[in-house]
Amino acid sequence: MSRVSDVWPRRPHRLSFGFPVPGGERTAEGWQIEWTGCAVMGVLNVTPDSFSDGGQHATLEAALAQARAMRDAGALIIDVGGESTRPGAEPVPAEQELDRVRPVLRALAGEGILLSVDTLKAEVAAAALAAGAHLINDVNGLRDPAMLQVCAAAGAPACIMHMQGEPRTMQVAPHYDDVVAEVHAFLRTQAQTALAVGVPSVLLDPGLGFGKTLAHNLTLLRALPELTAGPFPVLVGASRKRLIDFLAEVPRPADRDPGSLALHLYAARQGAALVRAHAAGAHVQALRVEAALEDPSLAPAR
């Protein structure tokens, strides 16, 4: 039997939508996006206080330039966030979050960019989808029934992330009896619930750094083949996170891209469908090289 690492560059993945999307193909079940191997979700924080790039893309001009650059570099999805969910972050009102993300979404509509919105508020999700978003990335894991209904009514897929607690307190002594069993069970249960109420498709995200210690994070990474062997595509987001500092002594988040690449290449080899990254272009490049090394038929003829 083939190992995940033998097949990941050619492993197919799919997301379904209830409306037309950039690059989508219309099918009997709606519109679908398909890709093989591991693709990149580029991070676009339009917040003043995100942990590694807060304020860098807070103006509309800077945000649009970054989104287009990530698209041109080969990112499959751009994930726009208007509220920081770093450990200890305070929540912001929905209208303030929308004031940050809505102009970006409206400006990018029609530019051929598949857009995700990183939010845990159903109100923000509904308005973001109306403004041009295609997918909802919910760090609260669709626990809110209203968020389920928003995604189902719009025909929008959702990324279901696991988080123990909430951002202000999630890193205060997180505890699990069996982190793999608990996280995977939560993700699978939420996925089945989402599909049952009409959400067209889902991504699963084990939520590295969201209510987890270093040991929890490493255990979840090593158990990725168990999660990626299931029917749902898996997203891994380790970009610039504190576990890289713990492993490699890199205190400044902006200096953690090499460690992010290492963790995400590992995740790709374990079958991850997407990695969520700040340095989107560097990740696209690294994943293409890694895929060609593992499957020589993917290397272009020269």
Rank of each mutant, 00 (worst) to 15 (best):
residue 2 S to D: 14
residue 6 D to V: 04
residue 8 W to L: 12
residue 16 S to A: 14
residue 16 S to P: 00
residue 23 G to R: 08
residue 24 G to M: 04
residue 25 E to M: 11
residue 29 E to T: 10
residue 30 G to Y: 11
residue 35 W to E: 00
residue 37 G to P: 01
residue 48 P to C: 14
residue 51 F to Y: 14
residue 51 F to N: 05
residue 54 G to H: 11
residue 55 G to A: 11
residue 57 H to S: 03
residue 58 A to C: 06
residue 59 T to W: 03
residue 60 L to R: 05
residue 75 A to Q: 01
residue 76 L to S: 09
residue 80 V to L: 04
residue 93 P to M: 09
residue 94 A to R: 07
residue 98 L to D: 03
residue 103 P to K: 13
residue 119 T to C: 02
residue 121 K to D: 08
residue 136 I to F: 11
residue 141 G to L: 03
residue 141 G to Q: 03
residue 148 L to I: 02
residue 152 A to H: 12
residue 158 A to M: 06
residue 159 C to I: 12
residue 163 M to G: 02
residue 165 G to A: 08
residue 165 G to R: 15
residue 171 Q to W: 07
residue 182 E to W: 09
residue 184 H to T: 08
residue 199 V to A: 09
residue 204 L to I: 06
residue 205 D to M: 08
residue 209 G to F: 05
residue 222 R to Y: 12
residue 223 A to S: 13
residue 231 P to H: 00
residue 233 P to K: 02
residue 240 R to V: 00
residue 241 K to Q: 14
residue 246 F to Q: 15
residue 251 P to W: 10
residue 253 P to Q: 09
residue 256 R to Y: 06
residue 260 S to T: 15
residue 262 A to I: 05
residue 264 H to Y: 05
residue 264 H to M: 12
residue 265 L to W: 04
residue 268 A to S: 04
residue 276 R to M: 12
residue 276 R to P: 08
residue 280 A to Y: 02
residue 281 G to W: 00
residue 281 G to M: 01
residue 283 H to L: 15
residue 284 V to K: 05
residue 287 L to V: 01
residue 289 V to E: 14
residue 293 L to N: 13
residue 297 S to K: 07
residue 297 S to F: 13
